[in-house]
């Protein structure tokens, strides 16, 4: 039952992502991506990561994608009028990577016996997650918090400078 649910969610995530990357309008793309993130969050839950699943919904779908929507609406972006350029120089690397993906998928499916084994049942409670995080990765938490602070300062700086620029032009 759980495996059937997993395959359904995987199909949902793949389909939503495919629709996302082919949309002309960035708003539609973001909505499809939020759909894919919900499916991914449930996959995380099935793989024994309830806290990560909650954060996927809260942080990714709730905060980051809404930030994307805000920017798209602020800039009043219109859908791409022209089709993506079909020049060979741009498609060649994508095709090469697709071939690499096919080859590696075939290798995974045929040769590697270790990965044929089922993923065992696993459940990481938020309590053990927090204990492991602050026991072993306390320094990483501090560095990440500094990084968020710097990012906030950088975003604030970029936003302010543009207003000053416009004020200069209009005066």
């Amino acid at each position: 039952m759980a495996s059937l649910l997993f395959y359904l969610l995987a199909a949902t995530a793949l389909l939503a992502t495919l629709l996302c990357i082919t949309r002309r309008s960035p708003v539609h793309a973001v909505i499809f991506l939020i759909n894919a993130f919900f499916a991914l969050a449930l996959m995380f839950y099935l793989l024994g990561a309830p806290l990560i699943a909650a954060w996927e919904v809260i942080v990714y779908a709730g905060a980051i994608m809404v930030l994307f929507l805000f920017v798209i609406m602020t800039l009043e972006l219109s859908p791409d009028s022209q089709r993506p350029a079909l020049s060979r120089g741009q498609w060649a690397p994508a095709l090469l990577l697709f071939l690499l993906l096919l080859v590696s998928a075939g290798l995974i499916l045929t040769f590697d016996p270790a990965s044929q084994a089922s993923v065992p049942l696993f459940y990481a409670s938020p309590r053990s997650f927090g204990a492991a995080l602050f026991d072993r990765y306390g320094l990483a938490v501090e560095i990440v918090s500094f990084q968020l602070l710097f990012a906030a300062a950088g975003a604030y700086y970029l936003g302010r400078r543009r207003k000053a620029h416009q004020a200069e032009e209009s005066s």
Partner: peptide
Amino acid sequence: MIVPLNHILLVAAALFFMGLSCTLVRRNL
């Protein structure tokens, strides 16, 4: 969980490839 690891890896690889092709092909920031 009854899902083999390689199926999860395949799904993740397909997702990664779709993101990569989106990054390479689209011209919209």
